[in-house]
Design a protein around this nucleic acid. Structure first.
Length: 383
RNA sequence: GUGCAUGUCGUCUAGAGGCCUAGGAUGCCUGGUUGUGAUUCAGGCGACACGAGUUCGAAUCUCGUCAUGCACU
């Protein structure tokens, strides 16, 4: 049994394999399925932790890459660890920096030891490899830390995907060897393999050969279309160990999350609720809407009548529209609050449905919503 | 009333006879955004005040009309 993280299943949907569970960390319990908002620089963009707490967030994600560059992982350690530094006493997960370095694209150089890259702000060259990432994440001190993996953009050729996957496996071995605080930090391994099913299953076998407290599916939503995301997740998730949490990295939209939960995923993170919010888009049960359009100028009702988030309790669509039109920062804040609350609530609703034994009905309703939203958006694209 | 000046997308403007079926910014309208290089990116709409002339050719030069501003009466 892992000291840093214990996971148990509360219920499994017999129709789909969707799971309701919980895991315990040094900073508390997290009930799954769970959506984890992203706080890249030790802060959610445009949102305070008081507001994050009021969205019922159980756990947040932050980034080793960004915290390493500034303020520096040594400084975070000096501050007493990330929980004290940022003022959030619930669980925290840090990403390893693998994906950030991947997204730098032209600014990096990959070697067997790791990745040389230039700070996106410009400046001197840095290096992060699996051993360094473990040091950084140990200094930062999150409850869950991620293996340093290599990610390829889709579509990738089979050979590229294979080479990248094998590098990820070698790097995982190094991560395990350099993981100094296994009693306080749970290290999750990351499955790669791009869009190739045989590589995905090979990767699951290699990654789960390590006795780690949790596993993640990486390399998803990196250029491929929606149906491919669904295919990869649907294929890969059931291969993962039943009694360990399963984390789908970087996904996603409300529909993606429903679908992945159906496939048996327990944890999600995505920048979509905060980024879309800052750009004026809101998740609703009826699909995505843009508060920038003038059709909301005189809609004196909340985004959703039954939503319990601060934004919906206090403000109308007309007001939100006004804020975006005036480029008031509060618009991004209020929509972020709503969107985060929306995805968190959705995961909670899935959990309740799984516990109540009616997940099939819940999911089928989500399918109908998704289809009508797809039709509406296709029509909008035609114009 | 007289004199002078000025009239270009909704707004601010580029423009000095062909590089202009008029460019930019902003605005407005549509989209995109999936382990945040992202409070952003892409596309669209939209004007030479009006009328005559000079010229092969006028947003640009001339005249008139209208409008606006300033000064004087």
């Amino acid at each position: 049994m892992n000291k840093a993280l214990q996971f148990e299943l509360d219920a499994v949907c017999p129709w789909s394999g969707a799971r309701a569970g919980r895991f315990t960390t040094p900073h508390g319990v997290v009930e799954t399925p769970v959506f984890m908002p992203v706080g890249t620089n030790g802060a959610l963009k445009a949102v305070t932790f008081d507001q994050v707490r009021n969205c019922d967030a159980q756990i947040v994600l932050s980034n080793s890459y960004h915290l390493y560059l500034r303020p520096g992982h040594e400084l975070v350690k000096e501050a007493g660890g990330i929980h004290k530094f940022i003022g959030w006493d619930k669980p925290i997960l840090t990403d390893s920096g693998g994906f950030q370095v991947f997204s730098l694209d032209m600014l990096r150089r990959i070697t067997e030891e790791g990745v040389f890259f230039k700070d996106h702000r410009g400046g001197r060259e840095h290096f992060i490899g699996p051993a360094k990432s473990m040091e950084i994440q140990n200094f930062i001190g999150a409850d869950i830390i991620m293996a340093f993996d290599d990610c390829v953009k889709n579509p990738a050729t089979y050979d590229e995907a294979l080479a990248s996957m094998e590098r990820t496996h070698r790097w995982l071995q190094t991560c395990v060897e350099h993981h100094a605080r296994a009693d306080q930090q749970a290290l999750f391994g990351i499955v790669q393999g791009s869009m190739y099913e045989d590589l995905r299953s090979q990767s699951v076998a290699a990654v789960t050969s390590h006795d780690l407290p949790g596993f993640a599916i990486g390399g998803v939503a990196v250029g491929e279309d929606r149906s491919t995301i669904e295919r990869i997740v649907g294929y890969t998730t059931p291969l993962l160990p039943e009694h360990k949490p399963r984390y789908l990295m970087g996904v996603g939209t409300p529909w993606d999350i429903s679908y992945a939960i159906r496939c048996g995923v327990d944890m999600f993170d995505c920048v979509s609720p905060t980024r879309l919010a800052r750009h004026g888009a809101a998740f609703t049960r009826a699909g995505r809407i843009s508060l920038r359009t003038s059709k909301y100028a005189k809609e004196f009702s909340p985004l959703e009548d039954d939503c319990q988030c601060f934004t919906c309790k206090m403000h109308t669509k007309a007001y939100l529209h006004h804020l975006f039109r005036q480029k008031e920062q509060a618009g991004g804040t209020l929509l972020s609050i709503h969107n985060i609350h929306h995805l968190i609530r959705q995961a909670v609703e899935c959990r309740q449905a799984i516990l109540n034994g009616n997940f099939k009905q819940y999911f089928e309703a989500q399918c109908l919503l998704h289809e009508s939203d797809q039709v509406a958006r296709a029509a909008a694209q035609m114009r």
